[in-house]
Write a protein that binds this DNA or RNA. Structure first.
Lengths: 152, 152
DNA sequence: TTAAAAAATATGAAATTTCATATATAATGA
DNA sequence: TCATTATATATGAAATTTCATATTTTTTAA
């Protein structure tokens, strides 16, 4: 293992997960920045691509970040014309975030690039069995989430 | 899948990796903060636990962060008496970071907690085959790293 | 040997992120 | 109903992070 110096870190589950995530994302995140987006903004676009009109809180959870940070990211994306806020009829506390036309175009484009990058990545990962890695991670994530919920 | 709204994100490899890492680390990182450490500081302690006297640059790479950020994290840890800088004899550019006695004690303690947390976590992950997850991730990480190097 | 390039670290300034809390609305329960 | 609690979002201020670049030392190559 060329990545870490000693015995503990290089085989520590939390390190392996963080480092794998970082290594897998590195190139694509650079591409995202080339496209003039920051990673959190790309995450918002991806969430809204899947389901338009999500609440700030949901966007924050799905994008793995804090609510107040998401509020400011949505501020910036709104100023830039990628999304608009609409208040939820029926619950005045909620703010629904919608893609603008420009936001839709950009999110589709970047999602397409993400899919292509993912294909490339998976085809490069023959050793780990590309077909199994995603189902494995899905099960891992489910288990982790239920374990975490149980602990709350 | 309860985590994400739509079809793209919830099965996107980079999301699965980031979310798994986040979900796996969440509880332990909260514990790290209880112990008065920030996550990057804990990473430094873990690296130096494995190999004392690493350079700033190495610590940054192993801890998955930028060099200038690591410089400032080491500043703080030094002020706090957890590490000391020593200049490398033989290469005056290099700064070697060493654990103090307090730093050694703390790093051993937290590494021990990390090991215990990892055992708990792995034993909770029966569904994904605890014995295979780490070797799989090690292979995944190796593949990702060599793919990334090839791309540079 | 010496100029140029590379490597390691540090730092100023701008931007982002965090933390605590404010504000507004909705839900709950006596 | 009305007070209390919970939920959703926003915001000020402090802290951290990023980005570009300065500084110092070493390596390279002519």
């Amino acid at each position: 293992m060329t990545q870490t110096p000693g015995k503990f870190v290089s085989s520590y589950l939390l390190y392996l997960l963080a480092a794998s995530s970082e290594a897998a994302s590195h190139q694509f995140h650079a591409r995202v920045r080339e496209l003039g987006l920051r990673v959190p903004e790309w995450r918002v676009l991806a969430c809204l691509y899947d389901q338009d009109g999500l609440m700030i809180t949901q966007l924050a959870r799905y994008s793995l970040m804090e609510q107040s940070r998401m509020t400011r990211i949505v501020d910036q994306m709104e100023k830039r014309g990628l999304v608009v806020r609409k208040s939820d009829e029926g619950d005045g506390r909620r703010v629904r975030v919608h893609l603008t036309e420009a936001g839709q175009k950009l999110s589709s484009d970047v999602v397409e690039e993400a899919r292509e990058h993912e294909r490339t990545l998976l085809s490069a990962l023959q050793e780990v069995d590309a077909e199994r890695i995603k189902p494995s991670l899905e099960r891992l994530l489910d288990s982790l989430n239920s374990w975490n919920s149980a602990k709350q």
